[in-house]
Simulated scan of single mutants.
Amino acid sequence: MYDAILVPTDGSEAAMDAAEHAFSHGERYDATVHVLAVVDQTESASIVGRGDEKLESLREAGDESTRRIVDEALARDVDAVGAVEVGAPDRTILRYADDHDVDLVVMSTHGRSGVGRFLMGSTTEQVIRDGDVPVLAVQR
């Protein structure tokens, strides 16, 4: 049913919770788990004047986040690959899913509601609304 499962990560424990669900699906369907960290372009826009140091720091944090999940998947004998990309999180997640023929996106949601969700936005909600791939939203 699933050959490729995508888990976006921001390095949070909520993302690790979502990864647990992805591992389960990966084991059950013998699917590859793709782990994606997105360096938010609003963050990278703030590096102007600070050189490549800040961008490199954000990429390293993304590498660490993806590596942690990939290593855990591999320890469970689930095929996994990691990637770090720069862009708007929701659009980058959807582009990655399309480029890699992802069958399922498994991602965390922090469960914000009301004003908090309005002010902060919801990457998960945007991916669900704008994408054409099924999304398993894991609330922490």
Rank of each mutant, 00 (worst) to 15 (best):
S65D: 00
E60Y: 04
E60T: 03
V84K: 05
R91S: 15
L94W: 12
E60P: 00
T66D: 02
E60F: 06
Y96E: 12
T66F: 03
L74E: 13
V81Q: 15
D99M: 15
D71M: 07
A83N: 10
G87R: 09
E85D: 13
S65L: 02
A83R: 11
E60N: 05
I69D: 01
H100E: 13
D71I: 03
E56Q: 09
T66Q: 04
R67I: 02
D71R: 05
V86K: 08
G82N: 04
S65Q: 02
A80Q: 07
D63E: 12
R91D: 14
A75T: 07
E85Y: 11
D71F: 06
D99Y: 13
G87Y: 11
R67D: 02
D77R: 07
V70K: 03
I93K: 08
R67L: 05
G62T: 03
S57I: 06
P89I: 15
R68P: 00
R68M: 06
A83L: 13
A97W: 09
A75C: 11
L55I: 07
A61I: 01
A73S: 05
V70G: 02
A88S: 12
D90A: 13
V81W: 12
A97F: 09
L55P: 02
D99K: 14
A73N: 03
A73Y: 03
G87T: 09
S65C: 02
L55H: 08
G62Q: 03
K54A: 14
A61V: 00
L74D: 11
A61N: 01
